[in-house]
Nucleic acid binder design. Sequence first.
RNA 1: GGAGAGAUGGCCGAGUAGGUCGAAGGCGCUCGCCUGCUAAGCGAGUAUACUGGGUAAACCGGUAUCGAGGGUUCGAAUCCCUCUCUCUCCGCCA
Length: 444
Amino acid sequence: MTCPRSNANKYNFVRPKVKAFPMLDVKYLRDNLESVEARLKTRGEAVNLGAFKALDERRRGLLKVNEERKALRNKVSEEISRLKDKSQAQGRIAEMREVSQSIKSLDEELGRIEEELQGLLLTIPNIPNESVPVGDSEDDNVEIRRWGTLPEFSFTPRPHWEIGEELGILDFERGAKLTGARFTLYRGSGARLERALINFMLDLHTGVHNYIEMLPPFMVNRESMTGTGQLPKFEEDLFHLDGVDYFLIPTAEVPVTNIHRGEILKGADLPLYYTAYTPCFRKEAGSYGKDTRGLIRQHQFNKVELVKFVRPADSYHELEALLGNAEKVLQLLGLPYRVVTLCTADLGFSAAKTYDIEVWLPGQNTYREISSCSNFEDFQARRAAIRYREDDKAKPDYVHTLNGSGLAVGRTLVAILENYQQADGSVLIPEALRPYMGGVAKIG
RNA sequence: GGAGAGAUGGCCGAGUAGGUCGAAGGCGCUCGCCUGCUAAGCGAGUAUACUGGGUAAACCGGUAUCGAGGGUUCGAAUCCCUCUCUCUCCGCCA
């Protein structure tokens, strides 16, 4: 990897005026400690809010003392400034010198406490929404609907890696030669198909669903990763650059949500819908041996992402709409799928509620996740300090952020190969995609 | 990579012999007044976070914030150090 700028190790980006990363609402936490703890437990994760309580109380106690001393210093300093003859102030100056000393040490202690408090708060996941089914594992996810008719074959349908290799459009061996395991080289019509899908999805979301297209950086800094919740807990899943503190994005959610980090949006501008194509880079640590064949689990894959910034009151119907926008892609491509609601145990760290869309893969006789649509409520907005002001008189409030894949491109290609495969080894191109394939109706 | 300039409130823009500066002025915006409509005019107001009080409202008090971090000082937007970002010129380059 090359570095965008050499000889730089530390970055102090322009920070929002708000102290960013307050995660959960600290006041709410303080007042509802037990119920929050109970709701977080449904995620199946041990949470210890006792440490939070102790630190919070300690902080406020010290803060009170410290601020009183600062108030005194300010007052006396002002008095000194009004004296014509500064020699009269010697005693007070000496006194304030000591006060300043004690302020300095209190500042340091408070700094340590706040750092610890923030470190703790940053590792607490979002609270599941009431509508999320409580469960112990992914087996408790709830299927809410199916769409499409499963294709029937007069032969045994094959997995996409066989189809792709035979057609000469997917080259797993050379992908591994170029980089390593979980990298694939697309060739000819395969490369064209991937590109067609990207353009088809972007055109649909911008032209029909009214999203604004974004093309963000594919690597981001630590603040951005913290804003959406990948950091500090999941650093081992991310590719980090050498020599500069940047990460390759694991999803466009990160750069696109962080577009408005530290900003106060205008109510009149909401809701904001953004879509972006980006490659995604994931280490897939801990998934050794899983999905080792084919395109399903890659270290680098393409995705068209949908991101929304909305008013809190609207976020749940916006989630349904976003889910519908993602489903539309599959419907237009004629790919059967089902939608499931993730239960509390399967919910991602930052999400309050998530729907997964799973596409039918006949070659593997199973449904596989192809999109994940989530409402983060104000969790990311707090971390990233993204607020809005309804009108000029209103107080700023946190927006709700949502995002979803619209869709994972590689997996969509997989679904097309497997669902549209023919007895002779060729693959039909769905009608909607043909204009993007130069009119080609069939590969092979 | 080399040389230089800069970073102030929603925006523009004052403020460098340290003190009453959360910060002049203008624009914008909000409320009120006024002109028969519009435009103009007049008056008042207009940052955020944390924190204490209060009915988790209104409101009142305190602290912090003039790119970020640190230092000097009774006191810093103003002085010193470090870093980041932006702009201009040269070099290099898709």
